[in-house]
Design a protein around this nucleic acid. Sequence first.
DNA 1: CGGTATCCACGGGGATACTG
DNA 2: CAGTATCCCCGTGGATACCG
Lengths: 122, 122
Amino acid sequence: MSEPLDPEMFADCSPVAAPMRIGDKWTAKIITCLESGPRRFTELRVPLRGITPKVLTESLRALERDGMITRTVYPEIPARVEYELTPLGRTLFEPMAAQCAWTREHLPELLAARQAHESAAH
Amino acid sequence: MSEPLDPEMFADCSPVAAPMRIGDKWTAKIITCLESGPRRFTELRVPLRGITPKVLTESLRALERDGMITRTVYPEIPARVEYELTPLGRTLFEPMAAQCAWTREHLPELLAARQAHESAAH
DNA sequence: CGGTATCCACGGGGATACTG
DNA sequence: CAGTATCCCCGTGGATACCG
């Protein structure tokens, strides 16, 4: 119960344990948008209200590098580009669902605690 | 499969769906440190290599505001302060475990994809 | 011991304009 | 259509020093 904390607890997980940018502002939303099938660049920009092309490109490239999505260019005119989740990318839905479940179940408690704290500080 | 994306998909979840700073640099580690029982400020600083007192204080205060931990001051000399997870705080272990499970299972694939990408870009 | 007070660096993200 | 190219803001987190 009260043994001292291991000083090396997090020694190895610094650079590698959080290599995915799932905690950033856009990635989880992008993954969600791709759940129902391949999507085009401009198509993604619609629900992703106000994301700039630069940021969307960066996010997609990062996901591609990590093997989460594929980028396919169809040689038409004008060119069509489609982004699609890989099987690996689809495994992200599990932890994402856990996050959503937590929020669904416990967000009211969190908000209540925040309210109570605000009142106490009056 | 290819119906247009709902433009309002994320309309309501912007400010409230990610109210927890679990994705930040330190919070998940702090929660982990508190799993085995209450801990003191200085005690937490040991495994949290290089966290500054300012940042640790900010993180703890945020968790306290959200009802995840309690802060108890014992009127001794010198004063002793203990941080402890609330029942609500303990519910965070579920989504955190899902994250860890994902990393354990899929990190090698991610790393391999990254390697392959690096080679391809030569 | 358990913080606070300042100051500062960095990088994610945004705004805007332009292009093959 | 699917991006690039610049420039810029701001918030997280770090460094350092000091305090009740």
